[in-house]
Nucleic acid binder design. Sequence first.
RNA 1: GCGCCCGUAGCUCAACCGGAUAGAGCAGCGGUCUUCUAAACCGCAGGUUGCAGGUUCGAGUCCUGCCGGGCGCGCCA
Length: 564
Amino acid sequence: MQDTLSRQLLAALEDLGGAPEGFTPEFEVPANADHGDLSTNAALQLARHFRRAPRHIAEHIAEHMDVDANLVSGVEVAGAGFINFRFADSWLHAGLGHLLARGEAFGRTGHGHGQRALVEFVSANPTGPLTVGHGRNAVLGDTVATLLEWTGFDVTREYYFNDAGRQMRVLGESVRARYEALVRPDMPTKSVDGVIVPESFPDDGYLGDYIADIAASVFEEFGASLLDAGVADGRDLADVDIYKKAAEKAIFAEIEATLKRLGIRMDSYFNERTLYDSNAIWDIVEALREKDLAYDKDGAVWFRTTAFGKEQDTVLVKSSGEPTYRLPDIGYHVNKIERGFDRIVDIFGADHIATFPDVLSGVEALGHDASRISVLIYQFVTLVRSGEPVKMSTRKATYVTLDELMDEVGEDVTRFFFLMRSANTHLEFDLDLAREASEKNPVFYLQYAHARIASILRKAEETGLQTNGDGDLSLLKHPAEIALIKQLLGFPEAIHMAAELTEPQKLATWLRETATSFSKFYGECRIIGQEETLATARLQLAAATRIVLKNGLTVLGISAPESM
RNA sequence: GCGCCCGUAGCUCAACCGGAUAGAGCAGCGGUCUUCUAAACCGCAGGUUGCAGGUUCGAGUCCUGCCGGGCGCGCCA
């Protein structure tokens, strides 16, 4: 539609001497329905070029545009020089027919056809259960991935983790201490952050109950044999591996189960260690040295981030010889590009805001196209309990787990809760009001509209009306019907916009408008009991609405119930 | 101190690369079920878009400076 209008508009400008090279008119859907269905500010933009009043140009265009009456029923000039187009009913009816024919594929577009996308999200090291904060990450990432799939990309969902760092070692030591206490119940204890722990427990160890559970499973498998083997003093770091492995396995299993509850399945788990094994990170250091972007100082290797506008250079390799996280991060992103992904999306918490530009600089410096990488930053979720913010720490186990949240409000509400707001605004969640709040959650509004349509279709079938026939759609002329059709036909664009901007919240907002539009139609236009041809046509409009709501909810990962 | 994000109705949030009269929900007030699901619908009320400038035909949106909140600023990740 826009392409057609665009061509006709440019043609109408020929008598004025033509539009400047490369000029493309912009169209938008006006906020106010009085301003038509599609509007362009082209005349305003061209005023300077033609040295004429915008209104004058607009009028010229409106008069000289050769529009197809089957597509557009009206062209009007308004305001300072806007040109407003009104769609012809026949075009809307044809669109509705197309929608019904496409069914559950309606909304899918081919923008990304033939391209591969990688969405990296969650990426929590397996040191404990997923928390509410991880939930926001997981739901955003999964939904962005689905949006990209709907716009034609071949999408891979990837989870990045590191099981070789300090965090994981401390985790293993925590498990080992709990295990020791199982073998020797009389072992001395001490207190860490107010929790009684075995004496050998690390001071910065993980305090959650799940650590004891993992220790118990190790004890079940090995009995006391690990101590008998002479590693009981707990000072031999090599042996911590057994505990670490056990913890990693158990925690990953739990994480996967939690994600599964949310309807999320990862396609790939990427272990940071891969980058060490392949020597990739050391190749990067050398490459950066050659470009004079890396140098030695104080026994460490530094990255010349000042060359990219930073105030200070940053360390890539510590004087101990260990890389900082920045180096593998660069390596990881180069790896993503080398794997051939055209579009790469990272989902990061706000604490990464300052650091990922370094990574992009590194990728760019190594001669790769960093513009393929986009980063979705989300602000933190603050939990409020009894009016007080809850400090969240995985180590201290003062978190609320994602599972607990789902137990309380359900999976659908959990997903929608994280999707209904723009990612870069702070999210405050009052646990005491969780249940109450969930009943007011707009997700029910969407599901209700869907269930209501399902009910109508059931009832219509009982009445003997045709629910899948070819009614005469041109009978749909009521303002509420026309408004609803226009809304429904905007679905592919809503998906595309949400995907393009990586803002799933746009789709959630759009779906709410759709449900509202349907409610108006429902209130004003009865179906059952009307003259049969009209009833059949309206039934098809209802069926089309159901398709859009179902597809939209599916993209968001939320169920579309048949009844409520 | 420096960097990034945010500031819109009493509350929680929208507003599609700058567009026309800034919109919803909740809370408040008043209406609507003997007919397809009232988890709904209709109406009323609610605003100097934090403040002050600037850019232009036009600014919630872009720029500058303040004020307020958040997150970072380590040879931690």
